[in-house]
Design a protein around this nucleic acid. Sequence first.
DNA 1: TATGGCCATATTATATAATATTTATACGCT
DNA 2: AGCGTATAAATATTATATAATATGGCCATA
Lengths: 231, 231
Amino acid sequence: MKLQADKEVPEPPGTLATGVYERLRRDIFSGGLPPGEKLRTEYLRNRYDVGNTPLREALNRLSADGLVARIDQRGFSVTKLSREEFEGLLKTRCWLEEIALRESIKNRTQEWEENLVIALHRLSRVLPMVDGEANPDWEAQHHRFHLSLLANCGSEWLLSFCTQMLDHTDRYRRFASDASYGDRDLLMEHRSILEATVDGDADKAVELLVGHYRRTGKIVLSADISASSAK
Amino acid sequence: MKLQADKEVPEPPGTLATGVYERLRRDIFSGGLPPGEKLRTEYLRNRYDVGNTPLREALNRLSADGLVARIDQRGFSVTKLSREEFEGLLKTRCWLEEIALRESIKNRTQEWEENLVIALHRLSRVLPMVDGEANPDWEAQHHRFHLSLLANCGSEWLLSFCTQMLDHTDRYRRFASDASYGDRDLLMEHRSILEATVDGDADKAVELLVGHYRRTGKIVLSADISASSAK
DNA sequence: TATGGCCATATTATATAATATTTATACGCT
DNA sequence: AGCGTATAAATATTATATAATATGGCCATA
């Protein structure tokens, strides 16, 4: 039985390129490399202490993820955030996650439902904010919980699309998270999604999930995204 | 007005890396580099006459496209084709294109409908097969027609997902295209999808589109895909 | 004086080549 | 079959070369 928590052993990456990729990714998510930032290769080589080859590999992978923009002969930069982009993301996410959740419920198994319960339990054991800062542990568990909801949909493709969009949404949320979570009972929102799901009530689960996203969306949109998009 | 055909000027790529990327892509689609083929960097450097840097960049981009598999320390290889993978692809494609087509119709404009008519017209002017070989011109126009159907959906995200899946489907179709198209009136299938679409009959358009895909899917699945997947 | 184009220069991205290091794979042995 | 070594291959560095882009000053014109 595979119940023990995935040990957070940061496990040395297989290659330097993969390592830089992961570090760059973290720095983009955390804001260490803010949206719009020009990514000069020489600077990054020093910053991460690697050579040209692994660095360019990492940047190319990130640009495929949509986290980095690449223009031939003009190099790389961190992708900007924008209101319009976020609105499109939110809309598309609702479309796709509705399908994924309905399919997951349609194919439901005891194992999947139990994984969901575990995911929610773990999420309940961490706080969204610590000392006014976003808590990375909560971010990780939150990410997992939402993916777990969709994990049973039976389509690797759909799951990977949803994962991509979840990543991007998390990035927006992080940048807008000055906006208060305070008056929301997030745990209860997640719990009710879970309950409708294990009850097999797809309509209700979808409604709750989409409502959950739209509510978060409003908060993100109420924050001044462009302020984070430094030139 | 922008009606003239996009001139097929192969326009020199901005960078060598982009150039190799495009050449590799073509060779994977054409079968010059068959599914499963190990991609040794030294071999490819000679084959395309480029250095390490642009080659690895190209390979990394392709692996993000899902056309190339990358395993740390074990290099690159052309992704294999499999029956299961294709079935998942087809299923997911039907889900997503249904949304995209319904939204496109919901938002329909005269300009979009006219673009569709043009796309179908161009498709009608080329033959799927020439001398028993797949006709690249038909492939290109076919690709465009199907994208045009979805282009009005109002979501860049959804459109990019559909494009990815269309690319992969095209690849499967190419490898299975020994199977006869003969007894199908493809042009008529496309024409009736178009008609339902400009009539604003979303239900019918979706039904026709999905039927079109499933019919093609059957043909692809009837071919022996694994035969193409050289070790 | 202000405006806009234009060229020289600086900067940066892109690329090569030679080479080092590490890791995987193949081979031959017991 | 299992084991260790030899070989091949992937990964990475460094130094350097080439080419595109960005910058800033210069001049002509209004």
